Computed example of a mutant assay.
Amino acid sequence: MNVIQTDIPEVLLLEPRVFGDDRGFFFESFNQRTFEEKTGVKTQFVQDNHSRSNYGVLRGLHYQIQQAQGKLIRACVGEIFDVAVDIRKASPSFGKWVGYRLSAENKRQLWIPAGFAHGFSVLSDVAEVLYKTTDYYAKDHERCILWNDPELSINWQLGETEPILSEKDKAGVSLNAAEVYD
């Protein structure tokens, strides 16, 4: 596995070692020992999630104010633009974001530690996203920052396409009004 540093040091882009031939390919999508050795992150994943979305769907920016979740994200079908926003008030990168294309083709994964809001837009006809979390889903602690907050100015890579949003995501709040981590 190759680990690529991002502009926010705690967020890591991971590239697996892929073995391919005329039959197809094989790669380890997760190995706890390798993950810890290569990233220096010692964590336990407690939940796996799987979503399917059509082109133009935008999910986010989500986080849990308590039971904060670290996430290891990958697209197993199609392509997404995956975004992490630092919402740790004491962090030097507070309010900054990084985003990367994750696809079935490039097999990249993004490690987003607890303390970040997360979202993605779907760039292909359909995308299936798998992600591991370090804590359980807690509806009462779920929060949402507006996907189009002008302070963040995230380019979701959708061009002129108007994103398809859930009611929850339409009701998100600006970063300035959001509950954030100390």
Rank of each mutant, 00 (worst) to 15 (best):
Met1Phe: 08
Gln5Met: 05
Asp7Met: 06
Asp7Lys: 15
Ile8Asn: 04
Ile8Pro: 10
Glu10Leu: 00
Leu12Gln: 15
Leu13Trp: 06
Arg17Met: 02
Gly20Ala: 15
Gly20Arg: 14
Asp21Thr: 03
Arg23Glu: 00
Gly24Pro: 12
Phe26Leu: 12
Phe27Cys: 05
Phe27Asp: 02
Phe35His: 12
Glu36Thr: 15
Thr39Pro: 14
Thr43Ser: 10
Val46Thr: 14
Val46Pro: 13
Ser51Glu: 09
Arg52Gln: 14
Ser53His: 11
Asn54Phe: 10
Tyr55Trp: 08
Arg59Ala: 02
Arg59Glu: 01
Tyr63Gly: 05
Ile65Leu: 09
Ile65Trp: 00
Gln66Asp: 14
Gln66Tyr: 06
Gln66Cys: 00
Ala68Asp: 07
Gln69Pro: 02
Gly70Gln: 01
Ile73Lys: 06
Ala75Thr: 10
Val77Cys: 08
Gly78Phe: 04
Gly78Asp: 06
Glu79Met: 10
Asp82Thr: 06
Ala84Asn: 09
Ile87Leu: 13
Ile87Asp: 05
Ala90Glu: 15
Pro92Cys: 09
Ser93Tyr: 05
Phe94His: 09
Gly99Phe: 03
Arg101Asn: 12
Arg101Thr: 14
Ser103Glu: 02
Ala104Asn: 08
Ala104Pro: 04
Glu105Asn: 09
Lys107Thr: 07
Ile112Trp: 03
Ile112Pro: 02
His118Thr: 04
His118Ala: 04
Gly119Cys: 04
Phe120Cys: 13
Phe120Arg: 13
Val122Asn: 12
Leu123Cys: 11
Val126Trp: 06
Val126Leu: 09
Ala127Glu: 08
Ala127Thr: 12
Glu128Phe: 08
Leu130Trp: 11
Lys132Tyr: 07
Lys132Pro: 07
Lys132Leu: 13
Thr134Pro: 06
Asp135Phe: 12
Asp135Cys: 13
Tyr137Val: 06
Asp140Gly: 07
Asp140Leu: 00
Cys144Tyr: 01
Trp147Leu: 02
Asn148Ser: 09
Asn148Glu: 03
Glu151Tyr: 01
Ser153Gly: 15
Ser153Arg: 10
Ser153Lys: 13
Asn155Phe: 00
Gln157His: 15
Leu158Asn: 11
Leu158Tyr: 09
Leu158Phe: 09
Gly159Cys: 08
Glu160Pro: 00
Thr161Asp: 12
Leu165Trp: 10
Leu165Tyr: 10
Ser166Met: 08
Ser166Phe: 08
Lys168Pro: 05
Asn176Val: 12
Ala177Val: 11
Ala177Ile: 06
Ala178Asn: 07
Ala178Val: 02
Ala178Gly: 07
Val180Ser: 13
Val180His: 13
Tyr181Met: 11
